[in-house]
Amino acid sequence: MSTTTTENTNRVVLVTGASRGLGRSAARHLAAAGTGVIGTYQSNRAEADAMVEEVRAAGVPAAALRLDVEDASTFESFAGEVADALRAAGAEHLHAVVHFAGFGAFAPYTETTAEQVEQMLRVHVSAPFLLTQALLPLMTEGGRVLNVSSGLARFTNPGYAAYAAAKGAVEVLTRYQAAELGPRGIRVNALVPGAIATDFGGGVVRDVEEVNRAVAGAIALGRVGEADDIGAAVPALLGDGMRWADGTRIELSGGQSL
């Protein structure tokens, strides 16, 4: 069953981290809006294939490509794979790139190692910086880039200094990308989720009842977020109705730590 609209016909979006969590939800909602999806995965091919089936069931093209966002040396060849996937989908260009791939790690500031900091920067800063750069020749004029930050870049939760610092850098990067890609009409924004009940960070918000309850108590709407609270917003953020949003952070946290 397809709900393809004229606005979204022939649009294809690249979603990193599409085999799980927020990326998987975004892929489903994009498909429901009539947008094709090229999703990436790191290791779980079975889940990536399941994502492709879900997207194709909505009547739009889909593909899954393996990508390790920590290895920037592969980005140029990956762009070639994306070009092949676009041709197979009957599309000339990418409409948008959405950067969901990533992970969280808990470590007190005084115990965080250099390698942990460097890995956070590679995954959460270098990847959206350099992967977007590699994909620019494939992007349509007037396309979109959606980086993904975190509410932890605004409020603090001890133990996430490296992760939050990297996400703060993502928000600065977003503004610079918007300024420099504006001449092509490419809009760049940062999607900022609050606490979400997924397997992220070991699933602590989802699976540990006291953590879930404590986090919900800090959210104005009285509950932690679900993956679909974020995924459902992605088609809207990439759509023409948000065409005047550029270089901004868009927080979806239910009113967390206001």
Rank of each mutant, 00 (worst) to 15 (best):
G254W: 00
A190F: 02
T74W: 05
T5R: 01
L221T: 07
F200V: 13
G217K: 07
L22W: 14
A165L: 13
E92V: 09
R175V: 07
G142Y: 09
A134Y: 14
L146S: 11
A227N: 13
L181D: 04
G159N: 06
M120K: 08
A114M: 13
H95F: 11
R213P: 14
R213M: 10
V125N: 07
Y163A: 06
A72C: 05
L94R: 02
I250V: 15
A83K: 12
A214C: 14
N189K: 03
K167E: 00
E210Y: 14
V192C: 08
G203A: 04
N44K: 13
R213Y: 11
I219A: 05
A89M: 03
W244I: 13
H124P: 07
V52K: 01
T156D: 12
A127C: 14
G59K: 01
A72I: 04
L237C: 11
D199C: 13
W244R: 13
P193T: 03
T16R: 01
L221E: 05
N189P: 05
G239A: 11
P183T: 15
V205C: 08
L67T: 01
V205W: 09
V204R: 12
F106D: 06
I196N: 11
L14V: 03
V215Y: 12
L131K: 05
A96L: 04
